[in-house]
Design a protein around this nucleic acid. Sequence first.
DNA 1: TGCCAGGGATTAG
DNA 2: CTAATCCATGGC
Length: 216
Amino acid sequence: MTLHALYERLHAAYGAQCWWPADTPFEVMVGAILTQNTAWTNVEKAIANLKREQALDAQILAHTEPALLVEWIRPSGYYNIKARRLQNLCRWLLDAGEEEGLRTIDTPVLRAQLLTVNGVGAETADSILLYALRRPVFVIDAYTRRLFSRLGLIDGAESYEELRELCERSLVASTDTVHLFSEYHALIVTHAKQACRKRPMCQNCTLRLHCPYQPQ
DNA sequence: TGCCAGGGATTAG
DNA sequence: CTAATCCATGGC
């Protein structure tokens, strides 16, 4: 099976995903930090708080008292670390001239700049690049690695960068690469959430793909 | 009840 | 360069 073929099967099973659920690119960035190793339902509560406080803005978040920001994002967990990470990202964004200032920067350069922000690792950077800044970057997460590995599409020992470049090389979209990459990552997460946790093979999975929780 | 979620930094070997 | 450890809430 090829990466293309897997995409077709996932799309046929789950349909269009239309990720990332957010009203603005900045909300995507905030969500990308808050969802680090955290259930999305918890992130929703934190973002709802930020909206209620009318604080979903880089200028405001960058200058908010950390103790206050911590209270707003508490439901998303790791609140002390994430408050600092959010402010790091906001300050970087403001320094760069916000989204307009980023528009002319080449994707590889932009990616390297994002990775200099403390608290922004490879997956967070790529989520921001793809879903907030609409750059053709393939997001790798634990689900992706596990699914591809169990289907024999990859070796499994590849580094993050190797795997990302492999996916980007293999998936040459006919028209809209950003759309393809956006949908693909979303479909993988949707499939992982639908798959069973305990049974050796997902019973309600019409794809006959290996359950992501199944031990190797 | 214990496990885990749309990771990353830090520290130790 | 790889492996452990820390960070923390809420849902099932």
